[in-house]
Nucleic acid binder design. Structure first.
Lengths: 225, 225
DNA sequence: ATTAAAACATGACAAATATCATATTTTAAA
DNA sequence: TTTAAAATATGATATTTGTCATGTTTTAAT
């Protein structure tokens, strides 16, 4: 079985600040889990017994709103942690985690995180900085949601997906999302997302090949109103 | 001069987890600052040299969006900390803090926070839990912004203000905000906020006396669509 | 290869919200 | 107290976004 060091050496998350012994313990007791596209990793209201670390693939954190819509809060790629916050605040998770494509996760039991958190200053400060960064991001998203048009938000997500998850050799976004996924991220109706993406195609800001999307004009996409 | 213990004894924030010596040091070096309604406590892009703790009054954290609108991210009352995140992540603040009424703040220099953060496990874990809570709150606000109508958000803010800052002997909200303030919080146009609040009056969900607002029917206000 | 289901597309219309204009009221300063 | 400025109110209208209906295309299973 592969060791945590492989992930950690890439400096992917705060676990890099664990001591060698702590890391070995994590590595020894972690389990690897596989999920298929669309699978639920955990569901709102569940009590998590540990933290998941994305080894391969992409997951989303979502919440079902009162009117039955799914709102996606965050996309998580390689090296990012799922369930961190629930473990820290010792509460049930208020979000669901769903696989956006076939995904491989490492599961690390709660104790292996909590103990270093209470004993290893470097680690806990690092986690603190991570949470601070997440908080800044969430506030930024809130402001965008309040101040930008749906069209601007769709453009922004396309740009984000290109930057965060990259493109293949032909320039298509590596992360393939449905129009419905996009709608849930920007907080709009599926039809609106479809219409906007169609318009982007007509305006040659993007091109598509089936479900694949390629950004053709990043500059103009950034200037969408 | 008053001591920190007075604030801390009310268990208002993570500073309660400082050791006696740490707390004494904070208490000794802190300074008290006064701001008048509308004053800028700090501005976007500033580099903060410490953390502010609200002793009396209410402040808001806001960001100026590209289209020139102010978006209010959070209201902060007694015992809450301003600038915490910028100090932790050692970045310039991306938000402005503005006094919503006459306000008294304690200013604690950076070092007095950073040092305990790196040495006192109990304190740093407590701050961690606070940030986790803030993050959950920010995600909740994001979802509300995406999924609820402007009317629902206005109703929600009124309820929040009553709960968080209380009412006077006649039942009027202690925190007096302008319609424009409400608009900035819910992310809408001032006229829309005015219209919605007027409608709430007509529907007897609230009543007003000048700028003062009293919630008359909390149940119905919660059920606004 | 065939076919059913899912995803995508698009028109027509409705609803929510923004914008602009113009009064009226309230607040705070002189 | 008077008065100018700010805040609130409201109508008319434009724009954005959502909803419903109905096709078409794509995907994936048989």
């Amino acid at each position: 079985m592969s060791k945590c060091e492989h992930c950690i050496s890439r400096q992917l998350n705060s676990m890099k600040s664990l001591t060698k012994e702590e890391l070995k313990r994590v590595s020894d007791c972690k389990t690897t889990k596989f999920y298929k596209k669309g699978d639920i990793i955990f569901d709102e209201g569940e009590s998590l017994s540990g933290v998941f670390c994305v080894r391969h693939g992409v997951a989303k954190l979502t919440k079902l709103s009162a009117n039955g819509n799914d709102q996606t809060v965050k996309l998580l790629g390689k090296g990012e942690l799922l369930g961190q916050r629930s473990i820290i605040s010792d509460e049930r998770t208020n979000l669901s985690a769903i696989a956006l494509n076939d995904i491989e996760l490492c599961f690390v039991p709660k104790d292996q995180i909590i103990e270093p958190l209470q004993k290893n200053q470097v680690f806990s400060f690092d986690v603190l900085q991570n949470l601070a960064k997440d908080l800044r991001g969430a506030e930024g998203d809130l402001i965008d949601m309040a101040q930008k048009s749906v069209k601007q938000r769709v453009a922004q997500v396309l740009i984000y997906v290109e930057k965060e998850f990259g493109v293949d050799e032909k320039g298509y976004l590596n992360l393939v999302l449905s129009r419905d996924d996009y709608a849930n991220i920007v907080g709009t109706a599926t039809e609106s997302a479809i219409r906007i993406i169609s318009q982007f195609k007509k305006d040659h800001l993007i091109s598509t090949q089936g479900k694949q999307i390629k950004i053709e004009n990043l500059q103009k996409l950034k200037l969408v109103e």
